[in-house]
Simulated scan of single mutants.
Amino acid sequence: MTAGRNRSFDKEKALKEAMRIFWQNGYPGTSLTDLTTAMGINKSSLYAAFGNKEALFKQVIDLYVDKHGIVHAAELFKENMPLEERVREYLMSVIRMQTSPALPKGCLVCLSTSEMAGDCLPEDSITQIAGINEETVRSLSLFFEGEKQAGNFSGELSPDGIANYLLTLQFGLAVSARNGSSLEALQEVVDFTVKQLKL
């Protein structure tokens, strides 16, 4: 019996491999052959387990956010640490992921955001990616609003302004990481950023 009939493969592992390929190549640069080769399955198994390329990509994005996206926010809520240090650790967590030798460089959401213009991504994926970016800004804004109300910072920047700045910064860091910047180089950017924010 073929793999396409009994689905005799590790679906979670296959999805992780699909994530790696999309992360490396981008959506338009990834073919079905790229996916089936990396996932170790044939096309019929891919369609049976995940749907078409568009449906698989949406599942990959969800996996990416769960495994490599929302995890960084935990650094912001660590106890007994000044806000400035928590923000620094948040950004350090981001760049450690973006430069990890065990992962493709950069950020899949950032890469996909850059592909939203034109016809690079399916409409559903554009909506999905835009929603992730909006939720990131909203969550960061709520966090800094709470910190401001708690008296942990009183700078001129608004919570919304800081949130938008940090998302923009993360995109810039991701592009730099994808371009070959080292963890040490990006750490200098993080240190400079935190100093300039004057939290």
Score class of each variant (00 low, 15 high):
32 L>P: 01
32 L>H: 06
34 D>C: 09
34 D>T: 10
34 D>F: 11
34 D>L: 13
34 D>N: 15
35 L>V: 03
36 T>H: 12
37 T>H: 13
38 A>T: 08
38 A>F: 13
39 M>Y: 07
39 M>W: 02
39 M>T: 04
40 G>E: 09
40 G>P: 09
40 G>Y: 05
41 I>F: 14
41 I>D: 08
42 N>D: 15
43 K>M: 08
43 K>H: 10
43 K>P: 06
44 S>E: 11
44 S>R: 13
45 S>M: 01
45 S>P: 01
46 L>S: 04
46 L>Y: 05
47 Y>K: 14
47 Y>R: 15
47 Y>I: 14
48 A>V: 11
48 A>H: 14
48 A>L: 11
49 A>V: 06
49 A>C: 07
49 A>M: 05
50 F>S: 09
50 F>H: 11
50 F>A: 10
50 F>W: 12
51 G>H: 11
52 N>Y: 10
52 N>F: 12
52 N>W: 10
52 N>Q: 14
53 K>M: 00
53 K>N: 00
54 E>N: 08
54 E>G: 04
54 E>Y: 01
54 E>D: 10
55 A>D: 12
55 A>L: 11
55 A>H: 15
55 A>W: 07
56 L>S: 00
57 F>M: 04
58 K>S: 11
58 K>D: 07
58 K>V: 04
58 K>G: 12
59 Q>D: 10
59 Q>N: 13
59 Q>T: 09
60 V>Y: 05
60 V>A: 05
60 V>H: 06
60 V>I: 04
61 I>R: 07
62 D>M: 09
62 D>H: 11
62 D>S: 09
62 D>N: 09
62 D>Q: 09
63 L>F: 13
63 L>Y: 13
64 Y>G: 11
64 Y>K: 12
64 Y>N: 15
66 D>N: 06
66 D>M: 09
66 D>T: 05
67 K>C: 04
68 H>M: 02
69 G>Y: 05
70 I>S: 11
70 I>D: 10
70 I>V: 12
71 V>S: 03
71 V>R: 08
72 H>E: 01
72 H>R: 00
72 H>P: 00
73 A>Y: 11
73 A>W: 02
74 A>Y: 02
75 E>N: 09
75 E>M: 06
76 L>A: 01
76 L>K: 01
76 L>M: 03
77 F>V: 05
77 F>D: 00
77 F>Q: 02
78 K>F: 00
78 K>P: 01
78 K>D: 00
78 K>L: 05
79 E>L: 14
79 E>R: 14
79 E>N: 06
79 E>H: 13
79 E>Y: 06
79 E>V: 07
80 N>V: 02
80 N>I: 00
81 M>D: 07
81 M>E: 14
82 P>S: 01
82 P>H: 01
82 P>Y: 02
83 L>V: 06
83 L>W: 03
83 L>Y: 07
83 L>E: 07
85 E>L: 14
85 E>Y: 05
86 R>W: 01
86 R>G: 04
86 R>S: 04
87 V>W: 14
87 V>K: 08
88 R>L: 12
88 R>E: 15
88 R>F: 12
89 E>G: 11
90 Y>S: 08
91 L>Q: 13
91 L>T: 08
92 M>F: 10
92 M>R: 14
93 S>Y: 04
93 S>Q: 06
93 S>D: 13
93 S>I: 02
94 V>F: 10
94 V>N: 07
94 V>P: 03
94 V>G: 00
94 V>D: 08
95 I>K: 07
95 I>H: 04
96 R>H: 10
